[in-house]
């Protein structure tokens, strides 16, 4: 799967499942500041990623992920 396909799937999850405005979801968007995903929300996001891509994500892998782009890259590397 190409990076842009991963991004489109991530965007779909954010918009459809989490109710985030589509225009806000860009590669540069910061999860907490721009998308208002707090510490509880991150757990939901991870669950959604795990279900969508059929992977498992460890908490340590998430430590450096603060933007949509970083999340997309992490997912891309694991698929």
């Amino acid at each position: 799967m190409e990076t842009n396909e991963v991004f489109e799937k991530v965007k779909g999850l954010f918009v459809e499942d989490l109710g985030i405005e589509e225009s806000k979801v860009t590669m540069d968007a910061k999860l907490e500041e721009d998308l208002e995903i707090d510490s509880l929300g991150i757990v939901e996001v991870v669950m959604a990623f795990e279900d969508e891509f059929e992977i498992e994500i460890d908490d340590e892998e998430l430590a450096d992920v603060t933007t949509v782009g970083q999340a997309v890259n992490l997912l891309h590397s694991k698929i």
Partner: peptide
């Protein structure tokens, strides 16, 4: 509720 407070807030 989605209409009243927006889906992102309502679903929490």
């Amino acid at each position: 509720a989605n209409e009243y407070m927006g889906k992102q807030h309502a679903r929490k």
